[in-house]
Design a protein around this nucleic acid. Structure first.
Length: 407
DNA sequence: AGTCCACAGGAAGGGCAGGCGA
DNA sequence: TCGCCTGCCCTTCCTGTGGACT
């Protein structure tokens, strides 16, 4: 594209009516005016949390349900409302929302408490360093931040299942103990979990005292997702921009996938972006299919790009030998060592590589099946689960990261 | 029934980078 | 600067395991 045609392109782009009226309505940070099909949960949460407005201690709450069931949205909605009322009536209420899955922010005990302190403290407080303090010290700072005056503090821990899986339930136990020792402040904890069975495996002390109230968010059905999508798309698009059957298709796909409303909204947004880029006028069903593929591919490529070089070498071993019959840990390790030798990477032990292979399973790149071949030992059978087009893009990325050049 | 393979996967700890207070 | 603390990535060592083979 020459300078002139580039100029014309941008001019024309600006003159065209934008495809999206308000794209924000399809993004994850968007807070709708009302939350559909979650009236019951809202009411229960409101009843449990209302004492906080009188600076009394509310019951701790455990909310659970599948991904995209509206847990976070509903709780944030309540959070906003509570905060608005508190500031209107000058009630000392502080609410901290923390996503425990955020890498390098709140994915360890230390980081979680440090982050919580940061959220609750005044801006004047000295920030807690990323590392270096004893954990006791961090708890102490958190305690001081919470108890510095008479106030109600609500601590919302999203994706709490991820945290517990990683560091155990000791954090929760410590928080409960601290809660009993507070002199002035009243602390209420809200745990949000995607794992519906989390509660069963918790320390009984934590279970009974931490989460006295449990609130289930059932998955949405296709009709409910349609409602949600219609509301959102009426804000996001001009009239007529969404073709017939598109909303139904998004809803059906998402309903099949554990009633994940977030996924349905993502599908619609990405489909819209595809049409916008094509210069089209209307989203059709075929765009939903392309959007589905694009979301999956982009998500995977980003995930892989964020991993270490060692991870890349293991994944490259998996990808390059995918056509050589059934894969198992031993053969992958041999191939991996060959790759390491080629790119001058010090090879890890088999123990560590087997963990990396499990991580690939966790990311949904492969499926692992532990099988026994009797006299010939026990091993994991490995199957790649990603599409050939995704493999193509990922191998490109891996070759670049490992300096392997073209195949 | 006992053996043995090729791992799986838990536990413990080493080494490193980096912050803090003395 | 030093000792102490952290998280993180990794190794070493170990026990456990399902089923084919003897």
């Amino acid at each position: 594209m020459g300078a002139d045609s580039l100029h014309t392109f941008f001019r024309e782009y600006l003159q065209k009516e934008p495809f999206f009226l308000d794209k924000k309505a399809l993004q994850s940070q968007y807070m709708p005016e009302t939350i559909e099909h979650r009236e019951e949960q809202q009411q229960q949460l409101a009843q449990i949390l209302a004492p906080c407005l009188r600076v009394e201690r509310g019951s701790n709450i455990f909310t659970y349900g599948n991904t995209g069931a509206g847990k976070t949205l509903t709780i944030k909605y309540i959070q906003n409302t509570l905060q608005r009322i508190a500031s209107q009536s000058a009630i000392p209420l502080r609410i901290a929302y923390i996503n425990c899955k955020l890498k390098r922010v709140a994915d360890t005990e230390y980081r979680l408490i440090a982050q919580a302190t940061k959220e609750i403290e005044d801006a004047t407080g000295k920030p807690i360093p990323a590392t270096g303090l004893p954990t006791d010290e961090v708890y102490k700072k958190f305690y001081e931040a919470v108890d510095r005056k008479e106030q109600a503090v609500i601590l919302i821990l999203d994706e709490i299942d991820q945290l517990i899986k990683k560091v155990g339930d000791g954090v929760l136990y410590n928080l409960i103990r601290m809660n009993d020792e507070l002199a002035r402040a009243k602390l209420t904890l809200i745990g949000i979990s995607n794992d519906t069975k989390l509660l069963e495996n918790l320390d009984p002390r934590v279970k009974s005292s931490l989460f006295s109230e449990a609130l289930h968010f059932p998955q949405y059905n296709a009709m409910q997702i349609q409602d949600i999508l219609r509301k959102r798309s009426s804000v996001a698009f001009r009239q007529g921009a969404v073709g017939t059957g598109v909303i139904e298709k998004c809803s059906a796909l998402a309903a099949r996938d554990q009633g994940d409303a977030r996924r349905a909204i993502d599908l619609l947004r990405v489909a819209g972006e595809l049409v916008e880029r094509e210069g089209g006028e209307q989203i059709a069903i075929k765009h939903i299919d392309s959007a589905e593929e694009k979301i999956e591919k982009d998500c995977l490529v980003d995930l892989v790009a964020a991993q270490t070089r060692q991870f890349h070498a293991v994944l490259y071993a998996l990808i390059s030998s995918r056509r050589d019959g059934p894969l198992n840990t031993g053969t992958i390790y041999t191939i991996y060592k060959g790759i390491c030798a080629k790119v001058a990477l010090p090879p890890l032990t088999q123990r560590r590589v087997s963990d990396i292979i499990s991580e690939c399973d966790g990311l949904g790149i492969i499926t692992l099946n532990v099988i026994s071949k009797g006299r010939y030992g026990r091993t994991s059978e490995i199957c790649l689960t990603i599409s050939e087009s995704a493999i193509f893009r990922i191998s490109e990325l891996l070759r670049k990261s490992l300096d392997l050049g073209e195949e």
